[in-house]
Computed example of a mutant assay.
Amino acid sequence: MPANRNTSKGRRAKSSKHKQPGILLRLFHRMPRWSFWLGVVAIMVVYVWAFYYFFVSPFGFRWRALYGDTSLPQGYEIHGIDISHYQGDINWAMLRSQGQIDRCPIRFVMIKATEGASRIDPKFKNNFEQSLEHGFTRGAYHFYSVHSPAKDQANFFIKNVNLQQGDLPPVLDVEHKPKGQSDDEFKNSVLEWLNLVEKHYGVKPIIYTYYKFKMQYLSDREFDQYPYWIAHYYVDSVEYQGDWKFWQHTDVGKLPGIKGYVDFNIYNGSYYDLRQLTIGSRETIGVEAYKEKN
């Protein structure tokens, strides 16, 4: 029996020792209450700072645009939009009667037509017809694919897009370079698309791309002969120092008649200049050949 009592005492000793609070817990109990709350506040401040630094600050302009606190480019009067099936069904009558950007009417609409060598935007036909019917200067663009030869893509665009007098020149939207092509091969492919489309419509196509892509891949002199449509978001001015015709300055615009967001663009010139750029104008290159063909 004595052995059992010793064992019991040993167990109680171990148990009481086990229940003693740790060093950190004892220090915590000895700390003043105000120091605890000070630590909580400090942790919250660090968390808020980290969240802002890594998630808000790099996209600050976009956050302000999303919540309607961004300014529009100043000094431009000719505004337009570009659309695709992502905008869904558009109320064209409302867009025409109520749609304004910076208290200026919408003058032009760029419409996605094709992509690659086999894809037609499902809303293209209706958008293309409705934009003309409601009095907008319209244009059609092709999204360049890295998966199809440039010749096939050009022929596919030509087959499906019937541009008329008064329409803007065809647009090549090029934003990606095929991984299997060298820079020179890629440039030649882009030029092949441009040359084939120019030969068919009788006008020099417009090149759409973003600033850094232009400078990295399309900065050669032969590309400067084409009208340039630059995508450069949430900045007060375009950094590109060369000539440009259009500037896509935000992708979070809101307008009556369109659900969700839509891209806003400006034209670098007057409305007269915009109309002079269209097919059939006296200044359009090669238009007589196009008129004879059609």
Rank of each mutant, 00 (worst) to 15 (best):
Q225M: 07
V174R: 00
S189T: 08
T284N: 12
Y233D: 06
V171D: 14
I206N: 01
L168D: 08
Y271L: 15
H200D: 01
D167W: 11
Y211S: 10
G257E: 04
Q248V: 06
Y228V: 08
L172D: 01
S219M: 00
F264Q: 09
T250S: 06
Q165P: 11
G280D: 10
D184W: 11
I258R: 05
E198R: 08
F186Q: 00
D173L: 11
N268F: 08
M215Q: 12
L255Y: 10
Y261A: 15
I207E: 06
Q181V: 09
H200M: 00
W193Q: 02
I285G: 10
Y267F: 15
Q276R: 12
Q164W: 11
Y240G: 00
W247D: 12
P178T: 04
Y233Q: 02
G257I: 13
K179D: 07
L191N: 06
N265I: 07
L163A: 07
G253H: 02
P227Q: 07
H176P: 03
D220M: 08
I206W: 05
Y201M: 08
I266L: 07
Y261S: 14
K204T: 08
P170L: 05
L172A: 09
T278N: 04
S182W: 10
L172Y: 04
L194V: 09
G202I: 04
K259F: 05
S182D: 05
D183C: 04
I206V: 13
L163W: 03
F223T: 06
G286K: 10
E175H: 00
D184I: 15
E175Y: 00
M215T: 15
Y217K: 05
W247V: 10
P169S: 02
E175V: 01
G202N: 11
K204D: 01
Q248T: 01
K204W: 00
N195Q: 15
I279R: 12
A231H: 01
R275T: 15
V197S: 04
Y272F: 12
P178W: 03
L196G: 11
Q181Y: 13
M215R: 11
P227K: 05
V262R: 05
D236S: 15
G286P: 12
V235S: 00
W193G: 08
K254I: 13
K179N: 14
P170Y: 04
I206Y: 03
I279S: 09
K259S: 14
Y226C: 13
S189V: 07
Y228I: 14
D273N: 03
Y211C: 06
L163P: 06
F223C: 06
E239V: 02
E198D: 02
L196T: 11
P178E: 02
Y233N: 02
V287W: 15
V190D: 10
H200A: 02
L163S: 02
K179F: 08
